[in-house]
């Protein structure tokens, strides 16, 4: 599974309150949530994301609450994948469970710049910066996690387990 897109770079510790403020948590509709993604940081972010972007971020992306709307909002806004130096555990699971590819990569912020065009191979964990011909090797996703992701998320995975 290969995901391609233009890079939007964000900093360290992008927390879930910033990704989707609590006042929006009474709803789960993806198109509603998409309008408010990263609102406190940049109310126009959803417009940037609409073309289909890949977020590259620093440490602890998604730190904070368990709100699954954070992953739903990012995906619905047009974020195709997130590559970060590290992720907060709950957000990482929520992203996988909603079919939003996430990849941890220690060196990513050093080698990838804002506006780069990248291709991410989720099976191998390789990130190719197309406009500069740079390739980075990130950690591979464990088999179980990759399987949930490739099925499109946990609901599909559960359906097959229950029915």
């Amino acid at each position: 599974m290969i995901v391609e897109g233009k890079v939007v770079k964000l900093g360290d510790k992008i927390d879930t309150d910033v990704i989707i403020p609590a006042k929006h948590l009474k709803y789960t509709d993806p198109s509603y949530l998409a309008q408010h993604v990263l609102e406190p940081l940049d109310p126009e972010f959803h417009k940037k994301a609409a073309e289909g972007v890949i977020i590259v971020a620093g440490r602890l992306f998604g730190t904070g609450s368990s709100r699954e709307q954070a992953a739903i909002a990012l995906k619905a806004a047009g974020v195709k994948a997130i590559i970060a130096e590290s992720f907060a555990r709950i957000f990482f699971r929520n992203a996988i469970n909603n079919g939003l590819p996430v990849l941890a990569c220690r060196e990513v912020t050093a080698y990838v710049h804002d506006g780069d065009e990248v291709a991410v191979d989720l099976r191998s964990g390789e990130v190719l910066v197309k406009n500069r011909g740079v390739s980075i090797k990130c950690g591979r996703l464990p088999e179980l996690i990759l399987n949930i992701l490739l099925r499109g998320g946990l609901v599909e995975y559960l359906k097959s387990a229950v029915n």
């Binding site: 904070g64 368990s66 992953a71 929520n94």
Partner: peptide
């Protein structure tokens, strides 16, 4: 628990974690 502060139950010697709605539904 479907709330990050489920970690609180670690006070009683439990392994306690928060998770998102899908994981908790599962």
């Amino acid at each position: 628990g479907a709330d990050s502060h489920t970690s609180t139950s670690g006070a009683l010697g439990a392994f306690a974690q928060g998770m998102g709605a899908s994981d908790v539904a599962a």
